[in-house]
């Protein structure tokens, strides 16, 4: 399951960060590393991007990027 499939409000743990090098690297630098817990806050009015919370801060990303983050609830 990827972050893109998660419902708004649900919490999950990141298990794997894949995707293009630039994407996975940037995501991990921002703290989206395997083992971290995230919560989906909301989606933007037109359905994209999405907002998540991790490590005490809020991060927005497009669904494209969210698809490269594997999670388990």
């Amino acid at each position: 399951m990827t972050l893109a499939n998660l419902a708004v409000g649900s919490k999950a743990m990141v298990t794997r960060v894949a995707g293009r090098d630039a994407v996975s690297k940037r995501l991990m630098e921002m703290g989206v590393v395997p083992g971290v817990w995230i919560r989906v806050i909301k989606t933007a009015p037109f359905g994209d991007p999405i907002e998540i919370r991790l490590k005490g801060y809020n991060l927005a990303m497009r669904r494209n990027e969210a698809e490269s983050i594997e999670v388990s609830e």
Partner: peptide
Amino acid sequence: EPSDEIHLSLTDNEAANRQIFARY
């Protein structure tokens, strides 16, 4: 090292990603 249930991306970038993981 990440434990068994969590995996890092297995791309060319793996070394760099492991480094980021270690820092965090």
